[in-house]
Amino acid sequence: MVYELPEELPGGGPRTPRKAGAGPTDLGSAIGFLILQSMLSVGLSVAGLFLLFGIDSCGAARCNYPMLEVALYLIPATAVASFIASVLGVIFRQRRRLSTWWIPAIGCVPAILAFVIATQLIDRGINP
């Protein structure tokens, strides 16, 4: 005798199949992208620091030092904040068995935007 489950459970609505969820390959991809995101963040921070070496020309001209200071801290602060948000997003979505590989890829966008903004701030700060 084979027992079949009823189409409708006693609690109400129809049964919904359980999600298969994100597998170990998705978590591996997310970790790989997190590593790439951290490498990109460090690279952009170093590139922003090298751009600030243009402050050497401020000996002969007037520079906007508060603007240059904002540019100095903008890239690393944004990179660290987006990395922490990406790690928390990966953990949160992985616990719910949802796809996570795209979170670090999107987490790179704020660091790149901060680099572009800091580049413009440095340019305006050195050449007011």
Rank of each mutant, 00 (worst) to 15 (best):
P76M: 04
L72Y: 12
C63T: 02
S41H: 04
A47E: 14
L36T: 03
D26P: 02
A60L: 11
M39E: 13
S38D: 08
G54S: 00
L72D: 14
T16R: 15
C63L: 05
A77M: 13
R62G: 09
F33D: 13
G23V: 01
G48F: 06
L9S: 15
I31D: 09
G32R: 09
G59C: 01
G13E: 15
L51V: 07
R18P: 03
L72G: 13
V46W: 07
A47P: 05
G32P: 01
L44G: 02
G13W: 10
S57C: 01
R15P: 07
A30K: 03
S41T: 10
L36H: 06
L68H: 01
D56L: 03
G21I: 01
P76H: 03
P76G: 04
A30E: 03
G48S: 08
L74G: 06
M39S: 06
L36G: 09
A77Y: 11
Y65E: 15
V42R: 10
A61Q: 15
A77T: 15
A22T: 10
Q37F: 02
R15I: 12
G48D: 12
L51S: 10
L74K: 14
V42G: 03
T16F: 11
T78C: 10
P24L: 11
E8K: 15
G23I: 03
G32L: 08
R18A: 12
Q37R: 01
S45L: 02
D56C: 00
V42F: 08
R18G: 05
I75W: 05
F50D: 07
M67W: 09
F53E: 04
C63P: 04
L49K: 10
L74P: 02
A77R: 12
L40S: 02
V80K: 07
I75R: 09
L52W: 00
D26L: 09
L36N: 05
R15K: 10
M39V: 11
P24Y: 09
G11A: 13
Q37Y: 02
E69H: 04
T78F: 03
Q37G: 03
M39L: 13
P10F: 11
M67L: 15
R15L: 13
A22Y: 05
R62I: 05
S38N: 10
P10I: 11
G32I: 02
V46Q: 07
G23F: 02
